[in-house]
């Protein structure tokens, strides 16, 4: 690993100023499960590493049925995985975090870190986008909110600029009509990167879909919403014919690449199968 300068700011203001001054050559470290591997394997260079773990207030976790879920940037994947509130209300997120890396990795990795790494195949991003999550971003004394589906600009790239620190994430509470699912497709049951990931978050009553958000992972430069497919389904009775149509539509919205993990054609096929299955699970089918 190449040497780097290491910083431990004590406040958000100090960290933000430091990051603004250091510019693009600085990386934030929280869990470090991506960053350190990338540094060791020379996949990323960073001459300055800014540890945000000494900053107070970033480990908050709160859920209530009115305001939904909000948790801080330092909350680990394992904390989300084992949270009864998450398991009870956000089964798609619960599923996704349970499939990320190993338990050892999940004990260190943070959900916000998984988001900010901006991998198209990140496990946590599709369910969070489907659930309508927003990020809180601090910079130079002000805090702003960015909807997660407007956050990514490409593989490993986001709208953040030097000085920005994501402090937490929030998402609305589910309603009694909500149904959610996430399906990860890979060659292994654990320790796997998604070759395709599909998350669905919908409102449905008696087979009728009143609203739906579908997020597709690992089939485009960023996780994407399958908006045309959502439009196709919104307000409709879900039946087998419509599901087949939705599967076809989602396949058209995906723009996968082919590589050693899977061909583009296979990934596209899986988008169809998984979208259909995820909607079924979200409507109460057994996963």
């Amino acid at each position: 690993m190449k040497p780097f300068e290491y910083y431990e700011p004590a406040t958000l203001a100090e960290a933000s100023e430091l990051l603004r001054r250091l510019g693009k050559d600085a990386s934030i470290i929280a869990g470090g499960t991506d960053l350190l591997v990338e540094l060791k394997e020379d996949l990323r260079s960073a001459h300055h590493i800014v540890n945000i773990k000494k900053i107070p207030g970033l480990t908050d976790f709160a859920y209530d049925p009115a305001n939904g879920l909000r948790f801080g940037a330092l909350v680990t994947v394992r904390e989300i995985e084992t949270s009864p509130a998450v398991n009870g209300n956000y089964p798609n997120l619960a599923k996704a975090v349970s499939l990320l890396g190993s338990i050892q990795v999940r004990n260190r990795a943070t959900v916000v870190g998984n988001i900010c790494r901006a991998s198209p195949s990140a496990d946590t991003i599709p369910p969070l986008i489907a659930d309508g999550a927003s990020l809180s971003v601090y910079s130079g004394g002000t805090e702003r909110s960015i909807p997660l589906d407007e956050f990514f600009t490409g593989p490993g790239r986001t709208v953040l600029v030097p000085g920005d620190i994501v402090t937490g994430i929030s998402m609305p509470a589910p309603r009694p009509t909500s149904g959610r699912a996430y399906i990860k497709h890979g060659r292994r049951k654990a320790m796997e990167l998604a070759t395709v990931g599909v998350a669905v978050s919908m409102e449905h009553v008696a087979g009728q879909c009143s609203d739906i958000r579908i997020a597709l992972g690992a089939v485009a430069p960023t996780v994407i919403r399958a908006r045309r497919t959502e439009d196709l389904l919104r307000g409709r009775m879900i039946d087998a014919a419509l599901l087949a149509e939705a599967a076809e539509s989602a396949m058209q919205e995906a723009t996968p690449i082919g590589n050693v993990r899977a061909s583009a054609a296979y990934r596209r096929d899986m988008v169809g199968v998984l979208t259909r299955r995820a909607i079924g699970y979200a409507m109460g089918g057994v996963q």
Binding site: R187, R188, A190, V260
Partner: peptide, 16 residues
Amino acid sequence: SLNPSFVDYKMPLSMD
């Protein structure tokens, strides 16, 4: 080599 790592050389693990 296209997959000289355990990320892309897929060995079954205990869960499999």
